[in-house]
Design a protein around this nucleic acid. Structure first.
Lengths: 342, 342
DNA sequence: ATTGACATGAGGTACGTACCTCATTAACGT
DNA sequence: ACGTTAATGAGGTACGTACCTCATGTCAAT
């Protein structure tokens, strides 16, 4: 007893195949009561459309575009690589993928890119960008044109994007905070927070979560004002060096944006005290090696492979107007130590 | 510029469609040099088989069976639920799923079940069971019959199963150990380890990893001999109560198997010191609530949803003799705190 | 009664692949 | 030269769905 087909619906509803087809694909020319009769038959026999066969018949190809910032650091290239890997696998069946790099923090170029994609008749876009008024407007246009839109890594909450694929950065900050506090184990001292100008929202949220936890659960620890690295290696090196010199009682370092490479090198050059707790975000070549060597104590990670595959699945589901399996699409806040480094 | 099809291969290789088909599906009756010519054409024009169309034409249905133990605790039911959820989604397209419960630790019944499945012409089985000689033999038979076999949760390393879907339990134990040691923050004291008879191998491995880390990195902490709960609520309650009474200097509890429900209740009844660190395995209703309430400090988890979907994907890939995306199928050792509880 | 609008049916082709049958050709041994 | 066997071609049907055309039926407005 295999799955019922359209023919079975026709038999069950006492109509022809053509009518079933009209109902299924919302084509005009069917009386309301007939539509209902067909739908009842569908319910009754438990018909589920064979999406793969439908796509075959439809000659359906999905055109998706990813708009990624040309941001410094290893994270975006890793995400890009994960996308290309997913594209090589069967997940991407019948879909064409465009990956566009745009200068970060340039709303004009991002909007222009999206406009071009919309003109090209794209089916869905995944956008990794801070939210700006012009981007908001363009997303509204995209949605009006029937384009599926998902926000990637950094949410665009005041737009009507279909979905956000990424982590809750406040919770990520809280997680980092708890780890910091507990790893310090009652020790007192100051904590250096290293931030970067990229992805202002995400960084601010992480900082917020971190501060909340530190203030509430670990009042004995002083969290210093953020150090701005401005994504520039030399600047990062200088400000971190200064801070390390100035604070003899440094208990921990929380790096919540880019600039981990410089930080790690600096710690290795200067030698780091055993008791110092260093926590960073995103598992990359640098941070992975640093975990292995003990330069980093923990990394808060969002799995780029999962994000890439999830984005593709969600875009496809949204263009087909199909439900997503929300448990599968939830991006987890991963805590990575040397011991569960995979 | 759509994808090349079999017809394009035929044209490019200068052979008929029938020959292309024979080559593609490894049917007999083609000269070696012709096979080569066709394969070259495939290479040249970059043909990739349209798996969905192939499956449609093939009328392929996958018959997979999951053999799960009727084990105590919440974990197996959660896994079962995850399987049923995956089955309701499109992942399961064209596949029939059988979930069989067997009494744990009864090799006879497990083998009988597998034999029956083999006789029924199953395409693949996922087995969650300890390894026994008779199971080993039956897996060899299954493989000979062309059945795909994956080990679930607990590996069957001395068999020729196609794949293991689960975590590295030694690493999981190490992870728990490091968390325990660092959360204790230099405090000294004794650690209670609560084990269960189920899944002997997994528990032993976790214990091994835990002990290794404690001995090497936290020599000031004494790890007590395992307490056996024998999966019996009353026994667990009794032995844990005794231990709590006896050890006034208890610093931490590591529960590496089932019995978390009883443990959590006991801790709540007796009141738990703030400094006590309690770490358990598997995120369930009980442990989730305990994390929220602060009764547990951390949970080491393997994601049942991921495991279920991965098992289905791997079984399908193995029966089709297709490569798997190993990054996607890697089951991570998740560290779950209250802050990154999803 | 005629017209037209709408609803429905009948039957087809297509998507890309699998798999079947039958006919034809080439290569071989005797 | 003959039969035998292996290799190949030609042409079909099928999978489940989409989408097209054309014919026919029904009903209400004129």
């Amino acid at each position: 007893m295999s799955r019922p087909t359209v023919t079975d619906i026709a038999k069950a509803a006492g109509v022809s195949l053509a009518t079933v087809d009209r109902v299924l694909n919302a084509r005009p020319g069917v009386r309301r009561q007939t539509i209902q009769r067909v739908n009842e038959a569908i319910e009754r026999i438990g018909y589920v459309r064979d999406v793969t066969a439908a796509n075959l018949a439809r000659q359906r190809r999905y055109h998706f575009a990813f708009v990624l910032p040309e941001a410094p650091g290893e994270f975006v290239p890793l995400l890009r690589k994960a996308l290309e890997e997913a594209a090589a696998s069967s997940i991407i069946d019948r879909t064409d993928l465009t990956i566009t790099s745009v200068p970060p923090n340039d709303p004009h170029v991002i909007v222009k890119t999206l406009q071009r994609l919309r003109a090209d008749g794209i089916d869905g876009v995944a956008i990794f960008s801070p939210e700006t008024p012009r981007l908001r407007d363009e997303i509204a246009h995209l949605k009006e044109s029937g384009v599926a839109v998902v926000a990637l890594i950094s949410d665009l909450p005041n737009t009507n994007r279909d979905h956000f694929i990424g982590i809750d950065n406040i919770a990520a900050g809280r997680t980092a905070g708890v780890l910091m506090g507990r790893f310090l184990g009652g020790a007192s001292g100051a904590i250096l927070v290293l931030t970067s100008s990229m992805q202002g929202r995400a960084n601010a949220e992480r900082r917020l979560g971190f501060d909340t936890v530190m203030a509430r659960q670990f009042p004995g620890i002083e969290v210093l004002p953020s150090l701005e690295g401005h994504d520039d290696p030399d600047t990062i090196r200088r400000v971190v060096s200064n801070a390390l010199d100035r604070h003899g009682d440094l208990a921990g370092i929380y790096s919540l944006g880019t600039g981990n490479g410089v930080l790690i090198n600096l710690l290795k050059e200067r030698g780091r005290p055993d008791t110092l707790v260093v926590i960073a975000h995103e598992l990359t070549h640098n941070t992975r090696r640093a975990l292995e060597e003990g330069t980093l104590d923990a990394v808060i990670n969002q799995n780029v492979g999962h994000i890439a595959r999830s984005a593709l699945r969600v875009l496809r589901a949204k263009t087909d107007d199909i439900d997503i399996l929300s448990a599968q699409e939830h991006i987890r806040i991963e805590i990575v130590l040397r011991e569960n480094l995979y």
